[in-house]
């Protein structure tokens, strides 16, 4: 309700108070995670006072990084996430360009059929894909983590929406200049679509980095686990050590926070773009 011109001081104060209370409830658990990760290893009873006068303990970080398979798991996660993001951007921009700009028979029918695959729950395809990968001997390899995640109907849909909003005149000028469709895709559409591509890249990066269920199913060995799976296994392998687990959790959050801070404006617009029904 935009009534900015006559908000009383009391209204403003109570709005700020509400915002601060909610904001604090969002931030405080994360602060708790951070402070626990800097406690003396093996500390179990959490004393609020130790939050204040405790010196920073890096030992949890040292132990999880060099005493366990976590560093390897972070490397696996990073590799898989980068590959999945690049692959998805590649396949999605190409298909979105064809759906948005090229004329061919049955285009709309194919697009609708393609969109309807978004309704298929992951658990439906999970079982046959697992069997397929097992037949190929790809369980516990990077293929199993990367290939099934390299194609995204959502990404194609989102980029198509954006491509449709690019004025055609620019491309027509390029055609007159003798550009092929490939040249237009590469030199006109892709540069203009940078914000949407960035948004999709960020969303893909984040969902791949945090993905848990599929990596849990296909990669169980100590060398092949991704970081989320490794963290979930620590409870079973090393007993519940909260200081260690929280250190691992903090390490996992750093890339996501970094990506969010760098790409915040693309991120928000990406959510809105994806929600526009075509």
């Amino acid at each position: 309700m935009p009534m900015e011109q006559k908000q009383s001081v009391a209204t403003r104060t109570s709005i700020y108070l509400a915002l601060i209370i909610v904001g604090a409830s969002m931030v405080f658990p994360l602060v708790w995670m951070l402070s626990t990760s800097f406690q003396k290893p093996g500390t179990d009873v959490m004393d609020l006072r130790s939050l204040l006068h405790g010196a920073l303990e890096w030992r949890n970080y040292q132990r999880i990084w060099s005493g366990t398979n976590f560093a390897r798991a972070v490397y696996n996660s990073a590799l898989v996430t980068v590959c999945v993001t690049i692959a998805q951007l590649f396949t999605s921009t190409l298909a979105a360009y064809a759906f948005a700009r090229l004329q061919f028979r049955g285009r709309n029918a194919i697009f609708m059929g393609y969109l309807s695959t978004m309704m298929v729950p992951d658990v439906v395809t999970m079982i046959p894909v697992f069997i397929l990968l097992r037949t190929m001997g790809w369980i516990d390899t990077y293929w199993a983590l990367i290939l099934p995640a390299a194609f995204s109907a959502y990404g194609t849909f989102m980029l198509r929406q954006f491509f449709l909003s690019i004025p055609r005149e620019l491309e027509e000028a390029a055609v007159i200049d003798g550009c092929t469709s490939w040249g237009i895709y590469l030199n006109v559409v892709l540069p203009l679509a940078k914000p949407a591509i960035a948004a999709l890249g960020i969303l893909t990066f984040m969902s791949s980095w945090r993905s848990f269920m599929w990596p849990l199913i296909v990669c169980q060995s100590q060398n092949m686990v991704t970081a989320p799976v490794a963290l979930s296994q620590f409870q079973e392998l090393h007993g519940v050590q909260w200081t260690l687990l929280m250190a691992g959790s903090v390490i996992m959050l750093i890339p996501m926070l970094a990506v969010f801070v760098i790409g915040q404006r693309f991120f928000i617009s990406g959510i809105q773009l994806g929600a526009v029904k075509g």
């Binding site: 994360l30 995670m33 980095w209 945090r210 963290l231 687990l245 929280m246 903090v250 996992m252 996501m256």
Partner: peptide, 13 residues
Amino acid sequence: ICAGVGLLLLWKF
């Protein structure tokens, strides 16, 4: 932003 296994472990704690 932070959603994922790390955050779930935090809640478990």
